[in-house]
Design a protein around this nucleic acid. Structure first.
Lengths: 216, 216
DNA sequence: ACCTGAACACCGTTCAAGT
DNA sequence: ACCTGAACACCGTTCAAGT
């Protein structure tokens, strides 16, 4: 279908309308705007303008603004998963690598604060049942769950229900990321990097005083 | 000033304009709308209509919509602090009471999901430097910090920098609350109540496997 | 099929005018 | 001082019309 007629200038496919993949272009433009200008700056008009396209062209590729944001969120989970898997694998698939995953998680949120917010559906309605969003969300979760599962098998972690443990670990890095993003920790005089390092330590060891056989 | 002229029907103070305290009425109406209809349903017009007042009357008491939301957030932190202090004091000011605080924290978020979101400035600009917001936010944090501080003194918790430890504990319950609210844990087959209980346990003990002297 | 331009309903905000 | 009604700029969305 695509190359039915042979000799034609392949570069610009006639430029009849615009790019080759407007949907992807719209998605990336939306991410860029959110990243640089924040969530409130994202208007369908601005996205269209940036691509030199009508403000209603978007409706050919997304049902509405909510669908666009859902795609932005799904793309975010994909990016996050890649960084998580990389941290785990290059870190050596051990406890140190798990800690590197935690650091990478918080770093991702702090580097992409607005994008990260969209991923967790803050302040607006996300299409929570969107198949792509669900799949990418599960994928990011699974990267963490797999790491924990192996560390359980290796005897480094408590052996307990995997998804519950994984959700807890996720909640911890998520909470740290949110507080650090909002500046809530700096507000208490605690640096984001310091909070992250401390939190990952205590995630592993807990906050209760060690037993008497261990030096306090 | 208030009772200068004596004999007058005290009930309705002439009804010249409206209520006695429009600012408070606007704040409560906004909270009610957010609570029941969600964040996107909060329009200044709707708030005005609900109180039978012009849509611009609000500008006599709040600089703009952002200022109204900031007041909503501050009120939320005040409510949260009350519940936290209650849990701590009625719980007996011990480790069990700390766990009750954690449960109460998550319960607050799950009972007031939209209000809770506003408190953490999701998706819109909050007046982060607003004195009332800062004060109430610090107050809620302090309730937790005080509890931890006493448990440290009593030897139940690791003795370390108080604000860092408190911020970590806050991050954990915050993260659990967020995931539970979004249904992200149910999505993984983990119940919110189960996640909360487990998380508070592991917050205390950590996830690493106990040392050999303790039964696994 | 894909895109456009005009139009509609809705919103936050401003402002001159009322009491 | 406090509130109102009309007006303005902006937004998401729809739709008939173009290619």
């Amino acid at each position: 279908m695509r190359s039915s007629r042979a000799a034609r200038p392949v570069k610009k496919p006639k430029d009849q309308y615009h790019h080759g993949d407007l949907r992807r272009a719209l998605l990336l433009a939306a991410i860029r705007t959110i990243q640089k200008q924040g969530f409130e700056a994202l208007t369908l008009r601005a996205v269209g303008d940036e691509l030199g396209v009508s403000r209603t062209a978007l409706y050919r590729h997304f049902a509405d603004k909510s669908a666009l944001l859902t795609a932005v969120a799904a793309e975010g989970f994909r990016m996050l998963r890649v960084e998580q898997v990389t941290a785990w694998e290059t870190g050596g698939r051990n406890v140190a690598a798990l800690m590197a995953m935690g650091e990478a998680y918080v770093r991702f949120a702090l580097s992409n604060p607005w994008h990260y917010r969209v991923m967790f559906g803050s302040g607006f309605e996300l299409l929570a049942s969107d198949p792509e969003l669900v799949e990418e969300g599960k994928g990011a979760f699974q990267a963490l769950a797999d790491a924990l599962s192996q560390l359980q098998a290796d005897g480094f972690l408590r052996k307990e229900e995997g998804r519950t443990q994984a959700t807890f670990v996720w909640a911890v890095v998520h909470g740290v990321a949110m507080l650090a993003m909002d500046g809530n920790c700096e507000h208490q005089g605690v640096g984001a990097a310091e909070l992250t390092r401390y939190s990952i330590d205590r995630l592993l060891t807990g906050i209760v005083a060690p037993c008497a056989t261990t030096p306090v």
